[in-house]
């Protein structure tokens, strides 16, 4: 025993020196999740692709300043070329410019609808989770009711009923945007509400919430400061998937002709216009389809990565 002591001491010293600088830097749970997310290859790669896509639609008009509605019958239904990298449609309009413009709308609708869904879901879920009894029961009943509604027919009906009203209130493009965001977000909050309620039901019984209450924290402070931050992990994952679902929903609406006005290109409406020319100009449908596919699949992969990164039981 005595003989081994000096040996272990010398062995400990360099190890302690290596450990010491790491201990100086405490990692918050969010930093830790970020570290784990970066290790998830597919999600990290998806994140980069998605960022590129966002950069293209955000900065595209400055690099490719071609108007979206310049009609040129001489160049109609052309395949990809140097003048039109993604080809042209039946009016000779440049598809790259139209897809960049449409991507702005599609991604903006996706994000905004997700925000609506998450805000409504968190409010409903938190209210239900904090107030046991009949309020909880009523809110969950409403949630189940919404979950039972057939989504697509209802979307179409709501768009059809309120389109003109919103057009009058907020203008052609603004009205369509607000209506689509509210309708899609308003029909997608249920999952978030259920998740948040379940989280709240378990978190509100945790000792640290009781401890904070015992030290004089008000109910609002308990909910916003102590319970909600601990419930956010699953909400972030659900929100990410919601962005993808909202992009699909918007494309579906536009494809069916009930989204934005037909002269405003979105990924879905370009796809709709292209469907009649599939045999002579397949590129026209291919590119918007690919754009939707790329956006949705990268967002879903990121959701996967976030779920793994935010799951404390998984070793990464």
């Amino acid at each position: 025993m005595a003989g081994s002591t000096p040996a272990s001491l010398t062995a400990d010293t360099p190890a302690a020196a290596v450990v010491a600088p790491r201990k100086n830097r405490p990692t918050s749970p969010w930093q830790e999740a970020w570290r784990r997310f970066r290790r998830h290859r597919l999600a990290a790669a998806s994140g980069i692709v998605l960022l590129l896509l966002i950069a293209v639609v955000a900065l595209g008009p400055f690099i490719w300043p071609v108007p979206i509605n310049e009609i040129d019958f001489a160049a109609k239904l052309q395949g990809p070329s140097w003048a039109h990298p993604l080809g042209t449609d039946d009016l000779g309009q440049d598809l790259l410019a139209r897809l960049i413009y449409g991507g702005r709308i599609s991604l903006a609708v996706g994000l905004a609808a997700m925000v609506v869904a998450v805000v409504v879901g968190v409010l409903v879920g938190a209210l239900a989770g904090m107030s046991a009894g009949w309020v909880d029961a009523a809110l969950m009943w409403v949630t189940d009711l919404f979950l039972a509604l057939p989504l697509l027919p209802l979307l179409l009906l709501l768009m059809y009923l309120f389109r003109d009203h919103f057009k009058r209130l907020f203008g052609v493009e603004g009205g369509a945007f607000i209506l689509i965001v509210v309708v899609i977000g308003g029909l997608r909050w249920m999952q978030v509400a259920r998740l948040v309620r379940a989280q709240f039901l378990s978190l509100r019984e945790k000792e640290f919430v009781e401890a904070a209450r015992a030290l004089g924290a008000s109910k609002v402070r308990l909910v916003v400061g102590h319970i909600l931050p601990n419930a956010l992990g699953p909400v972030i994952v659900a929100g990410t998937i919601d962005v993808a679902a909202a992009i699909i929903a918007e494309s579906t609406l536009s494809f069916l002709g009930l989204g934005f006005p037909s002269d405003i290109p979105t990924w879905g409406s370009v796809l709709r216009d292209a469907k009649d020319y599939l045999d002579i100009a397949p590129h026209w449908a291919l590119f918007p389809g690919a754009a939707i596919f790329l956006a949705v699949i990268t967002i879903n992969f990121m959701g996967d990565g976030l779920r793994d990164a935010l799951d404390p039981r998984r070793v990464l």
């Binding site: 640290f208 401890a211 931050p229």
Partner: peptide
């Protein structure tokens, strides 16, 4: 003021 039995769970993990 009060302190509880379970020190492992009486602190909020995110702060």
């Amino acid at each position: 003021a009060i302190i509880f039995q379970e020190p492992m769970t009486s602190l909020n993990p995110v702060y």
